[in-house]
Design a protein around this nucleic acid. Structure first.
Lengths: 185, 185
DNA sequence: GGCGTTGGTCAACGCTTGTTGGCAACGGTA
DNA sequence: TACCGTTGCCAACAAGCGTTGACCAACGCC
């Protein structure tokens, strides 16, 4: 597949879309604003992505890039996961976009459910003792990790923003560790 | 102050507004839809509440009704708080409304920050050992508790919905307990 | 009985939204 | 050079939004 001239435009639109969705959520991120950011006509967005929903689907194809936990010492999985998430969240705002849209939009919530099912569940299966408890334990982890993202990047609570990476790992690591590996309470 | 005839209408509007804000978030919850639910003309909403922002402010005047933790045994504060939150969330959708709007709307986020500052912080101050650490520890609790609400009521992850009250208290109680009272890691 | 206050409807306003179709310039190919 | 698919802009559309003001019906007081 040779590179087309329009690829740059496509990429610019996707970039602008990610920023707007992350900053404004689904409804307030208008096609016109995205087009303006990408220095392009709104009708181009339609031609390339069909509709606003199509644009959103193309813009946030989220890959959590979760690490393989097999080689990680068993008592380190919690800290490893928390560290990975903090890094991921700090370095791009795609996650904030999915989270924000997931909170407003039914399609966004569905997408978040898919990410949970296809990316977090398998990892939890690697380390959970009882296979039957995997969904519940993974859900508890999701609650803690997404809750951090929510308070830190969406609601922007000052004390949540002030915590450093190492502090977060130290506080949340044991929690995730317990949710994944501790015997049921 | 005697009861006016319009109080019933006012209440109907507020009820409908809470439902819509909780279900749809700020932007998609239109004044017209709220008025339709309340079987009233959209212009009445404006007359009584001035604007859409005014309506939102009046609809969700959120009081968490957090319990006084002084008489609670020190090792039970985590479980007590988690139980209280689960109850609160189950019995009305005002919280879902604030959370959802907080995720879309700048004013909503501000309101959430206010709730954190004026309602959660004082309670944390009651049980935290070091006053200087109170904001950080309260933020960690907020992350865990709001994360639960997010996955359970907004994103509607199936495994998060499946957990019962006692399970949630048993899993999250120790986490909140640790965030509030354990020595810094 | 007249009259101001209150509770409510109706129609319209100006604006923004997602979306569409036509039309002009470009670029490689024959 | 002539051609045709690609890339882009422009103007418009129907619909929906928050908001406004004119108007009507019922009530309570003199």
């Amino acid at each position: 597949m040779t590179a087309r001239r329009s690829d740059a435009t496509r990429a610019a639109i996707l970039d602008a879309a990610r920023d707007r969705f992350a900053a404004d959520g689904y409804e307030r991120a208008t096609i016109r604003a995205i087009a303006r950011d990408a220095r392009i006509d709104p009708s181009m967005v339609m031609r390339y992505f069909g509709s606003k929903e199509g644009l959103f689907a193309a813009a946030v194809a989220l890959d959590l890039r979760l690490p393989d936990l097999a080689p990680v010492p068993r008592e380190e999985v919690g800290r490893t996961l928390v560290g990975h998430f903090v890094d991921l969240w700090e370095e791009n705002d795609e996650l904030t976009a999915v989270l924000r849209v997931g909170a407003t939009n039914e399609a966004g919530a569905k997408r978040m459910q898919g990410i949970f099912r296809e990316q977090l569940l398998p990892v939890a299966r690697q380390v959970c003792p009882d296979p039957e408890q995997v969904p519940a334990r993974a859900a508890l982890c999701a609650a803690q990790l997404l809750g951090l993202a929510l308070t830190r990047y969406v609601l922007r609570l000052a004390p949540a923003r002030a915590l450093h990476r190492e502090e977060l790992v130290a506080w949340l690591g044991p929690t995730v560790q317990r949710y994944l590996t501790a015997p049921s309470p």
